[in-house]
């Protein structure tokens, strides 16, 4: 989208461009530090931009400080996709220095990008990738195997760092057109949807695998002992865990705080055990 004929002052050649992607990758890792109630990641956003703004506008210039102050505005997004914003913003700051883009549009772009990017980053990584990684690794953890932590770190962080690296690079290269196109065409929603589907299937699978809730209650009639749990298993395997998960889910949906649900579950466990309905598995 730029047709600059003047010699660029920032990242004039391929080599320095590569160095910039490297530097951005490492600096953006710090984004979560110094999160505040009022402006979330704003301070560290400007801290990450600091060396690039220095290069673009020159050290200690008024323009540099104006740019730093501009980036004190509220900012909050997912850390893995944040390099995309840094990339776009750096390319716009460069534009601003060379061709005079309106500075306001940089901030407008930041605030329009952070929401959708946070959504896609959270659904893809926090829900999709993390759940798959947890589901695969947790079995090894239970066996006390080193494969557990190793697998979990690799499965989580290869996509995480891959996205980080690519999003910084493409953010700078593509500028601000790419993400608006992707939003319009619905690609972002499709990715979110696909991640939610895998995530929900994993949640269902883990509900069946890891929620333990069975009764030890046995009813003695005239001549025989009836094992209540066996009856439940005949109706539907995993019926009690499923009901418990759905119960928690609908209780949470009524805007109850997770801590309250946690206490309710603990109290329920105590009451049922004291009544002899549940107990330690034999």
């Amino acid at each position: 989208m730029t047709d600059t004929t003047t010699t660029p002052t920032f990242l004039p050649d391929k080599k320095s461009e590569k160095r910039f992607y490297n530097s951005l990758f490492w600096r953006s890792q710090w984004l979560m530090f110094c999160t505040s109630y009022t402006k979330q990641q704003a301070v560290t956003f400007s801290w990450v931009m600091l060396p690039y703004l220095e290069k673009i506008y020159g050290k200690d210039t008024d323009e540099f400080y104006a740019a730093m102050l501009r980036h004190q505005d509220f900012f909050n997004t997912n850390v893995a996709v944040a390099p995309f914003v840094f990339g776009v913003v750096t390319s716009m700051e460069k534009e601003n220095k060379e061709n005079g883009v309106e500075a306001k549009s940089i901030n407008a772009l930041k605030s329009s990008l952070m929401g959708p990017l946070a959504g896609i980053g959270d659904s893809l990584l926090a829900n999709g990738v993390r759940l798959i990684a947890t589901g695969i690794a947790i079995g090894f953890f239970q066996q006390g195997s080193w494969l557990g932590p190793i697998l979990f770190m690799l499965l989580l962080n290869i996509p995480n760092w891959g996205i980080k690296w690519l999003s910084g690079k493409y953010g700078y290269k593509l500028g601000n057109t790419f993400i608006t196109d992707a939003m319009k065409s619905g690609t972002l929603n499709l990715i979110t949807k696909a991640a939610s589907i895998v995530g929900l299937m994993m949640v269902g699978a883990m509900s069946a695998q890891y929620v333990t809730f069975k009764t030890v209650l046995k009813i003695k009639s005239a001549s025989q002992v009836v094992d209540i749990q066996k009856i439940f298993d005949m109706i539907l395997p995993g019926l009690l865990p499923l009901l418990l998960v759905l119960g928690c889910f609908f209780y949470l949906r009524k805007k109850n705080k997770p801590v309250r649900v946690l206490l309710a579950v603990v109290v329920l466990a105590f009451v049922l055990t004291f009544l002899g309905i549940t107990g330690a598995a034999k």
Binding site: M206, V211, V245, L246
Partner: peptide, 24 residues
């Protein structure tokens, strides 16, 4: 002790429910 064991088995249900809230 037994109650705590039962609770530890049941509590993952809350974890699953919380995940469902964000995915549902």
């Amino acid at each position: 002790m037994n109650s705590l064991t039962v609770a530890a088995g049941m509590l993952p249900a809350l974890g699953m429910a919380l995940l469902m809230i964000s995915l549902w």
